[in-house]
Design a protein around this nucleic acid. Sequence first.
DNA 1: CAAGCCAAAAATTTATAAATTCCAAGTCAA
DNA 2: TTGACTTGGAATTTATAAATTTTTGGCTTG
Lengths: 231, 231
Amino acid sequence: MSIGIVHGAVEAPATLATGIYERLKADILSAQLEPGRKLQLRFLMEHYGAGQTPLREALNRLTTEDLVVGKEQRGFFVQSISLEELAELTKTRGWVEGTALRESIANATPAWEEALLVAHHRLDRTPRSLNPDNFENNPEWERCHRKFHALLIGNCGSRPLIAFCEQLADRLSRYRALSSRKSFRVRKVGEEHDALLRAVLDSQPDAAVELLVAHYGRTAAFIQESIGNPT
Amino acid sequence: MSIGIVHGAVEAPATLATGIYERLKADILSAQLEPGRKLQLRFLMEHYGAGQTPLREALNRLTTEDLVVGKEQRGFFVQSISLEELAELTKTRGWVEGTALRESIANATPAWEEALLVAHHRLDRTPRSLNPDNFENNPEWERCHRKFHALLIGNCGSRPLIAFCEQLADRLSRYRALSSRKSFRVRKVGEEHDALLRAVLDSQPDAAVELLVAHYGRTAAFIQESIGNPT
DNA sequence: CAAGCCAAAAATTTATAAATTCCAAGTCAA
DNA sequence: TTGACTTGGAATTTATAAATTTTTGGCTTG
């Protein structure tokens, strides 16, 4: 999910199909298109203002990413969610990002450590909520958070692994979006990031991986609770 | 790359697009469509006997799997290969299948161990070459081999991880196809599989993972040699 | 009440049109 | 004369509109 920013301006996608793809993906990840929903072409054409071909292409790409399921001859649906999948994704993310983080630390360079430090600083500075009283999700914080985590594993030296981690993060972000829609309570994660950063900069892979896995585990438990108990 | 066999008959894909997708994927993996080749719609339409839309859908799916690259407004190309990617894929496969195998062993059940035993037996029984004198790749052996390796990691309890392993195996199979095209020498892998099976059945995860990683490492070295030195 | 048929809706595919890129020939300046 | 830059047309990709299947849900009929 790369954000195409060039000199402050959003780079226009060269083709309609990729534009639709990005918008559709964003709408699914933010759960504006809710899990299980049927994606009828007529509706999509009207909603996104495009013909069938670009839509069909976008849907096919998302199918490979498991965000959309295509039942043959019966149309496309937003992939449905389940507590089981949440657990499976979290478990897998822990394993995979664990090895990626270990490799990243093993390959550590000053430049990487400094980038990590900066990303953490920015994350720390960015307010979690747009509104100090009522929680209102701050997309800028989301970006910083994502960037920080991407950087943690980004030094592992395997582009396929990084891409897989991104995919897992995408699939999990849908659960987070649903959670924050139901519950206005917010978990404090600042300390967890602090400890993680310290372990990484101190070259303590075992501790770092343990902290990372625990971090994801707590997020999953939090989400599970807020989704399981409808408010 | 699931082979759709039901009661001995190949299940016909419900839609043209998925049929094309499977054929195109097979042709890319077997390197009949060579790396870097431009995939012109006119040629594909003629060659696969289909319209543009199903082809376009297939290409878009393959794009997400990194088997095809789509340059915007400039068409589609078979993903090119490089020794660098070979190394990266091999390394990643070792890491990921390593953790998957560990989990599989941790979750071991009698049924799984027996399935593994059977798969190994079948692999052992199937001749590597169709022709005893000159090497001629036996697709049945390929299937058995793949099945054995899939089973090894298939008990890990994470469908996303299994899917990722399959994708890595797909991307690597292209290199193997190119290698066996250039060199008629064949590596003996029977003993490696034997040792691997024994370590798994003896519940020795460390040894098993080491054997698996070494197995993939040797395969990569073999391929690298035969591709690097054109015969 | 179940099975089968018919009409409407929806997905898939083909055919047509529009937009973009590519290539080569030609022009101009150095 | 050479090299870089433009220009026109052909080829190709992308998008829209129309046609073809396939499914679905209701209705009739046994």
